[in-house]
Each structure stands twice: as C-alpha cells, then as structure tokens.
Design a protein around this nucleic acid. Structure first.
Lengths: 206, 206
DNA sequence: CGCTAATCTAGAACAAGTTTCAGACTTGAT
DNA sequence: ATCAAGTCTGAAACTTGTTCTAGATTAGCG
C-alpha cells in the first residue's frame, strides 16, 4: 500500500518532497497548537512561525484557518481509522459494534479535548468553500461506521441510519465540547441512535 | 399573557422602556442583515449603525457576535413556536407528528436561508461562554418536539430519543446550509431519526 | 429642582484572519 | 549551465470582532 496523497483533490499537481515536508510541518504545528488551546489557540501567524513557513505560503497550502483545521482532522481521522482497524469491535450486533467503535473514538478525543474542540468547531463552522474537504471527512467517517457494522452492501435505509448516526455523533460532540452535556450523556445518545441500525436490519420491516 | 422578558437570565435587572426598544432594534437589525447575507453579513459595526446604537452599547447588550445571533435565534424560535402551536400536526403516530413539525420548521427556514445560516452557524460555533443561551435554545426546541409528541411525562428513554432528534436536526441543517445535502436528504434524515420515537414508545421494550 | 450613579456615544486602539507585493529562491526544460 | 515560470519569504496593509476611554445623557432619588 503506497503512502500517497490519499486526501488530494482530483487533478491536483503532485507535490515535491520539500512541499510534502512543508505540508506535514504545517499540519503538525496546527495539531500541536490545537492540542494546547483549541480553536482559538490555532493562530495563523503562529502556525506559520511554528512550521517555518511564511504566512503567505501557509495560505497557499490552506486557504483559510478552517481549511487548515479540517485538513488536520482528515489527518487525525486516518490515524484513527488505522488504529481502529487493528482491533475490531467485539459486540454481537451491528449496533453494539458501531456504538463501541464510536465510544472508542470518543475516548481518544477525550485525551486531547482541545484538539477535538478545534477540529469539530472547524468542521461545523465550515462554509460552502470548504464543502469538498468536509465531505471527505464525512465519507471517511461513514467508512469507519460501515466497517464496524461489517457490511459490504448497505441498503439505502442503512445508509440513512448511518447518516443519522453521524449527525448525532457530531452534534453530541459539540454539546460535550461546549460543556452542555456530560460524557455519560454522550454515551447514552450514541447508544440510543445506534439502535436505529437494528431497526433497519434486513430482516426488520419498514 | 404578559409579554415580559421570557429570555432573561435569573436576577437580570429589568430594562427601561428605551432599553427594551434598543434591544428590539438591535435584534431586528441583526435578523435583517442576517437575512441578506448570512453569518458574514452580520457585522457588528453595521448592526450598531442600523439599530442607531453605539458599538459599545451593542456590546453591552450582547457580549459577542455569537451571543447576538443566538439571541436572534431565541427570538425567532419564539415566533416559530407560536406559529406551530396554532396548527398542531396531524399525523397519527408521535413519530409522524414530530417529523411533520420539524419539516414545517425546515420549510420556514428555507424561506430565509441566509438567516438560517447565521443562526445555526452561531449556535454550533458557540463556545462555553454562550452555553446558557445555547441551552435555552435547546430547551425551547425540546419543548416544541415534546409538544408535537403530545407527551406530558416523557420517560428517560424518550428524552434520549428527543435529544438524538435534536442532534440530527441541527447537524442535518448544517449539511443542508453548506450545500452538502439536499432538501430531500434532510427530509429523509428527519424521518429516519423520528422512527426512534416508536422504538421508545411505552409499550416497546428496551 | 439638583445630585449621583449608571448608561450611552463617538471614536480610537488593539487582535487575529486574510490579502498583497517586491524581491529571493527552486524547479524543470532546454 | 541557463532561462522562464512558478514558489517562497518578509513585511506591510486591510478587515472585522472586540476593548477602551473621555465626555454627554439619562434615570432614580432626596
């Protein structure tokens, strides 16, 4: 499996080695600053300085702070997906496995709550100009959930359920990050929404 | 029914008539600018000018742009609740009634997509300093949904379902506003999540 | 009425995201 | 090796949210 730019848009010119290195330094600095103080702590001037790149260059690579943070999220999601893949969830039912997977992801986010804050806030604050990137994150999340379900060919109904699960996942994270819901509350919400999966299982009726 | 400050925090000093008028002018200007160009079009200097108030005064009434927009949302929600109350939904099941209510609200938002953009983006971007206000919006939404269900004493399970519905509602709105989901898609998501209600109906088992 | 505290105003000042520009450096092709 | 095109740098400028200040106005009270 070649480690190529899996997140590149179609028809984007290939980056030279030094460019790839710059990109990496920028993402690293972004994640580091985010880990310290969340969304507000990721200041473009600081990211530029931290990654040894001129401000203008930073903006050439990532056209806005939100673009940068969404890209940071893509990066982290890839890690996460790799990690999750190694230890597949143990639950009996698809619903249990999905809930277990999401809770595992949630625990990972709890270890870096500021980073989570920066990424999730960016994701939901993104306007149309960031749609392609946000969509990519969404697709990646979908893949993770479908993986947990263990499905090759989901029905349209199941895809709907997955989308609702993603909605709940994002929104529940936000309520947690802004201190309006406890960890336990998020757990309940995830478990509740995951029951939708059973409702749309092939043998269940509409 | 006295038209008092239903959104006031506990222990907030009562406003004089002129102050109430100022507050109203500000909220009106905010909604008007938002209707034009969404979140970005609501510029604090313009709001101040539009509402004939000094910038410093605007900040005394609403300590940040997000506070202002969340307050604008509370305002709009009150309207909406009043409107919805007049024509209760007709569906047979609770799930149908909730879906119908939310779709009605959704259609209202479609009429002012920019306003919707400003309000929803503010809501999800809000940090901890706005939690009380955001929570108030959330409670109001909960009331609307419970109204549609026609329940006096919801079970904890039903409250969980309502929370998940709210999550889906907010997040689905965001995907629509950022052009990543169609109106039809939002409809499907709402209908899908509303099935959770049936799943938690008293006669259904966990 | 006249006083005092609170509020409001105009405007400057500051902070951080974003844009712009002139000049130095790289890259790729010849 | 050399040239043209594209990229990077450093620094200043611009925008918009937010804060601050000094003085004018208003509200409540004796």
């Amino acid at each position: 499996m070649p480690a190529e730019a899996s997140s590149a848009s179609p028809a984007s010119p290939p980056l030279t080695e030094r460019q790839e290195a710059r990109r990496r330094r920028i993402l690293h600095a972004s994640a580091q600053l985010a880990s310290r103080g969340g969304f507000d702590a990721v200041q473009m001037r600081e990211v530029a300085e931290s990654s040894q790149v001129a401000l203008g260059t930073l903006y050439r690579y990532f056209p806005s702070k939100v673009h940068l943070l969404v890209a940071t999220m893509q990066d982290q999601l890839e890690h996460m997906h790799g990690t999750l893949r190694k230890k597949p969830p143990q639950g009996e039912t698809a619903a249990e496995r999905v809930a277990e997977t999401l809770m595992r992801a949630f625990r990972a986010l709890q270890r870096e709550p500021h980073l989570a804050d920066a990424m999730v806030r960016a994701l939901t604050f993104a306007d149309r100009s960031v749609s392609p990137e946000v969509d990519q994150v969404s697709r990646q999340t979908t893949v993770i959930i479908l993986d947990a379900m263990g499905l090759e060919n989901p029905t349209p109904e199941q895809l709907s359920a997955v989308r609702v699960i993603e909605h709940t996942w994002h929104s529940a994270l936000i309520t947690w990050l802004s201190g309006r819901a406890s960890i336990a509350q998020v757990k309940i919400d995830i478990e509740t929404v995951c029951r939708l999966i059973d409702l749309t299982a092939p043998q269940a009726r509409a």
